[in-house]
Design a protein around this nucleic acid. Structure first.
Lengths: 240, 240
DNA sequence: CGCTATATGTGTGTTAGAGCACAGACGGGC
DNA sequence: GCCCGTCTGTGCTCTAACACACATATAGCG
């Protein structure tokens, strides 16, 4: 599937979940934009001017500590969107959004989203349920960080990233993973070394390849499954 | 102000933020209930039958790990409510809600809340903004856990608890604080010992007294201030 | 008033990860 | 094909917190 032709299907899962008529109504407000690698999509405290529905690529939600150290608390791929605060009636958040894997998105002016939400549309329901799923993801991260060893957390993070990657290979250096996991680089090198020895992944100079997804998932902590289940649920059960 | 007479004001801050007419409409659906010490108010995965607006007391939101270890990810006092998933169109969550400090609440059937929300009322806006604040709290916790030493986190936790306590003294043993902070009991004993030596708190057999709130707050990590600011914001700026 | 259960204090070895230093190793540019 | 910047490997010390054991203190109870 060529990347720069018009996509035959709606890649973003939230938009794909909308009734056709509603999607058509939204279309004029959806502007395709690239998600450039390592760009700060949104900076903590700024007004949120646009919300983003990724087609592909990966957005990290970061808490930036007083000493400027970032800590990843959430991941957003094409299963979600950036801009939940707008859905919840706010126009800013203390988080930072960083593009961790390049891709593209459909973006929409925050104002247009607010108008659409006022109509009590299907979009509102979809986005609210997504908010819940994202909340679950962040909660589980909080618990995970304090409970699970780096090896397991690294595996989980790789699996989650893999879920949102276009293939089995993606650009990712130890330095960056260390930042996301909140540990030092040498710890990641050691943990990643183990995974490579066991032939679950391979990597060289910033290119990671997932070799054995099944075993990697088995190595990851339970938190992966918990969050995945909850994301699945947003479309089905537990709903109103 | 005597505790068992009819309260002269609305103690729950979310309900207090509603226009009088709307509060009156809600009143028939609000049932006063006690929040008994240490009771599990809601168990992970169960249908949410009621939402709770605390008058006083303190509810902990916990992630329960596979090995049954709980990890606190959020705190709810009279500034908030338990039942956000309902606001977001879900009827369950993987979190557990535990009453960490006794008190009372006004509860409402989830169904009644859903009906009210459909009307596009002020309540909806208030609860959505609260969702955002709670989200911020959980995000910050996640980052805090991996960045800050137990001493600072304990101070933060005590300050947050103090904010929601009726006075300067409350029941709280080291064992329980250890569970909330996700560390072992002896670590809490040592950290609490320091705070007691420095005359910021005192305690004896499960009764903690806050002696010097100002210094305790100064000892706490930045996360306290970040979350507090965001809670303040929900009523004012950054809104639509 | 002493007993007992429970809460707190403390000692000691172990471990995960921090923090730092530097050694290799790869790969793109010349 | 060589150079150099960048990425990765690894060795070392240091510390926070774990895990466990046990000592001590306190409140309530008989």
């Amino acid at each position: 599937m060529p990347r720069n032709s018009r996509p035959p299907t709606i890649q973003n899962q939230l938009l794909a979940a909308l009734p056709g008529t509603e999607y058509k109504r939204l279309l004029p407000h959806l502007e395709p934009v690239p998600l450039p690698f390592m760009e700060v999509l949104y900076e903590s405290g700024e007004p949120i001017t646009h919300v983003y529905f990724p087609n592909d690529g990966l957005i990290s939600l970061l808490v930036v500590m007083a000493d400027e150290t970032p800590r990843e608390v959430g991941l957003i791929g094409n299963e979600g969107m950036f801009g939940i605060p707008v859905v919840l009636g706010m126009n800013a958040t203390p988080l930072r959004a960083l593009i961790q894997m390049p891709g593209s998105a459909l973006r929409m002016k925050a104002e247009a989203l607010r108008d659409e939400l006022k109509r009590g549309s299907a979009l509102q329901k979809v986005l609210q349920r997504y908010s819940h799923a994202l909340f679950t993801q962040v909660s589980q991260s909080a618990a995970c960080i304090s409970s699970h060893a780096v090896d397991k957390r690294l595996s989980r993070w790789l699996v989650m990233t893999h879920d949102r990657a276009p293939g089995d290979e993606f650009a990712m250096k130890h330095e960056f993973m260390a930042m996301m996991l909140g540990v030092t680089r040498s710890v990641v090198t050691r943990a990643a070394g183990h995974l490579q020895n066991k032939k679950m992944i391979s990597y060289t100079r910033g290119q990671v390849t997932i070799l054995d997804r099944r075993r990697l998932e088995a190595t990851a902590c339970e938190c992966y499954a918990v969050v995945k289940t909850e994301y699945g649920r947003k479309a089905h059960t537990w709903g109103t």
